[in-house]
Design a protein around this nucleic acid. Structure first.
Lengths: 150, 150
DNA sequence: TTGATTCTAAGAATCATTCCAATTACATTA
DNA sequence: TAATGTAATTGGAATGATTCTTAGAATCAA
């Protein structure tokens, strides 16, 4: 799949904003992402990209995806992969979001008021039946003085 | 740490609902989770649990945690660990939640209306500065006929 | 107590991802 | 255009979290 001139310009601009070069491989991965608007895994992207560029390596696909995320053209459907964390199940009708502090790595509970929950339930289109909801934020938490959770 | 009688009853009831037994190891892991309300990783739980029960194995901690999640006493802070998926970054001020269908494994985009985003921003306590938000649902999507995304 | 079943322990296996060292490609200056 | 320095790519090894496997231990029902 060839990248349109327009998309190439978008890619070039985004990359050069961060002092990065546009390369054949980065164009390929970006083009792969553009060509089908689904939510492929790295391995799927690798397989698709190899159709056009048989020599591309998996490590490069990982690198290119990270680069695209860094320069704001793509995003990860799940936040970074790290060890799964556990907590006790909250009481019925009580909901917490989780806030991951990027500085400390700690996880904080954020209470979600009932009206927000109600609103979230309403955004689901017909036919979608959600059994679990996960809301999480990533950013900076208040400076560490008190003993907060991890 | 000893499990209170009350907590032991809670555990027993939850387990027996699913035809599962209460064992020393399951009590230990549950007790570990109860003793400190943070968001420990499996490995942290393993380390803490070993303080009381030096012979418990990591595999058992994994098993017990899965069991506790299955019977509704605990939950994972992040949904199941699987390959990271990628998509193109949406336009500014346009937000999508992701819906994971537990039958097909496919991921669907759910548009989040602006008022909901505004509401979500307001639930953050003073001092928390969220840079990214991830909202995801898990459940069943409408039956597969049309070509939906993955 | 017996027999059947469930659970645990320990280590091997798996899988996604990152790291590393050796090329290769690129942009710039001479 | 050639030389040079930097950035990017490769391919394989390494890592880390999690699951699998198998044998043995514990528990339950009769």
């Amino acid at each position: 799949m060839k990248l349109s001139t327009e998309s190439r310009v978008t890619l070039n601009q985004a990359l050069s904003q961060y002092g990065l070069r546009s390369t054949r491989q980065r164009e390929q991965v970006y083009s792969t992402l553009l060509s089908k608007h689904d939510h492929p895994t790295t391995d799927e992207i690798y397989t698709r990209a190899k159709g056009d560029m048989p020599t591309i390596s998996l490590a490069t696909v990982y690198n290119c995806l990270n680069t695209l995320v860094d320069c704001g053209l793509a995003r990860q459907v799940n936040f970074e992969r790290e060890s799964t964390r556990y907590c006790l199940m909250e009481a019925k009708n009580v909901h917490y979001a989780h806030f991951h502090c990027k500085h400390t790595g700690k996880v904080h509970d954020i209470h979600i008021p009932a009206p927000v929950i109600a609103m979230l339930q309403k955004i689901m289109p017909e036919g979608f039946n959600a059994e679990k909801v996960e809301l999480c934020f990533r950013g900076t938490a208040p400076c560490e003085n008190e003993s907060s959770e991890d």
